[in-house]
Simulated assay, not measured.
Amino acid sequence: MDKRLIVALDYDKLDDVERLVELLGDAVGYYKVGMQLFYNVGTAAVDYLRRQGKDVFLDLKLHDIPNTVAQSAAALTGLGVSMFNVHAVGGLSMMQAAAKAVSETAAQLNVTRPKLIAVTVLTSISGAEWAALGYQRSIRDQVIHLAQLARQAGLDGVVASPQEAEQIRKVCGKEFIIVTPGVRPQGAALNDQSRVATPAAALAAGAHYLVVGRPITAADDPRTAAMAILQEMGAK
């Protein structure tokens, strides 16, 4: 089982999650629970996936003052997920507080410490939207800067587009986790993603994990779609 593929469960109902997970079976071992699913069904989705022996990436993008994020990170550590994230633009102090809370809580609970990663710049952000936000750096330079800041804060990695993965790998080292959304097989619809790459290209650029949603979940045959992506990944 290739756990470099993380399937995004962008659903409102647990029944839909259960149907997909059963359909994909042992082909997929890692799933992303994002805000849409978590805000609808709460921890039930995480509990179900863990009972099925699946790894969980909890994608809630925590972003608040350091104390609030630290307390929230401590609570999420107790859920038993394999990885969750914060927003890097929350700053160095916020990320450091989160990292400290995760390590301390995992030790207190005697559980495996989940990986803590930071979102850099959303892969839906286009060049035009970026210009409207008024940042002085380019998207690429900002992503690299935030990745280095996350590494300095003691985080395990970042979420970044495939287009920035290669440079992050160079400046942050091979052990620094890179999770890449915006992965689209050849011929797949872009939907609301702007900075994308194929599975093979994302891995070649240095990504550790590929997050794929609609190309699998909206396919007529999700298992076949997942297997096609895994086959392409297996060549890398």
Rank of each mutant, 00 (worst) to 15 (best):
I139K: 01
T120N: 08
I168V: 13
H145L: 10
G157L: 06
L146Q: 15
V171K: 14
I177N: 07
L122P: 05
T123F: 04
A160H: 00
I178Q: 07
A150W: 13
G182C: 02
E175Y: 08
Q193N: 04
Q148F: 03
A197H: 00
E164D: 12
G127N: 15
D141R: 13
T120Q: 09
S194C: 07
A153K: 04
T198H: 04
S194W: 04
N191W: 03
L133S: 06
A147D: 02
R140K: 06
V171I: 11
V171T: 15
A201W: 03
Q136T: 14
D141C: 07
K170I: 10
Q136S: 11
Y135G: 10
A147K: 07
A202Q: 00
A132G: 12
P162H: 09
L203Q: 01
S124D: 14
S161G: 15
D141S: 10
Q167C: 05
R184S: 04
A188C: 08
T120H: 07
H145E: 08
A197W: 01
A131Q: 14
C172T: 07
I177C: 08
Q193V: 02
C172P: 08
A160K: 05
R184C: 01
T180C: 12
V196W: 07
V196A: 10
T120S: 09
L122T: 09
I125W: 06
T180S: 15
R140V: 00
I168N: 10
I144A: 00
A160R: 03
R195Y: 12
T123P: 07
I168D: 04
R184I: 00
G206F: 00
V143L: 02
D156Q: 12
Q152L: 14
Q193F: 01
I178C: 13
T198P: 02
K174W: 07
A205G: 00
A201F: 06
A200C: 09
A200V: 10
G206A: 03
L133H: 11
G127A: 10
R195N: 13
Q148S: 12
A150P: 06
V158P: 06
L190D: 03
G127D: 15
S138Q: 11
S194H: 10
I178Y: 09
G154P: 09
S124Y: 10
P162T: 03
V159M: 10
S161H: 12
P162A: 04
G206Y: 02
A189E: 15
R195S: 14
V171L: 11
A128I: 01
R169N: 15
G206R: 00
H145F: 14
G187R: 13
A201V: 05
W130S: 12
E164C: 05
E166K: 15
R195V: 12
A153I: 03
V179S: 10
A160F: 06
A131P: 00
V119C: 13
I178N: 11
H145C: 08
A202E: 00
L190E: 05
V171F: 13
E175Q: 15
Q163D: 06
A165Q: 03
G127V: 10
A200K: 14
Q167A: 13
A197Q: 01
D141E: 15
W130L: 09
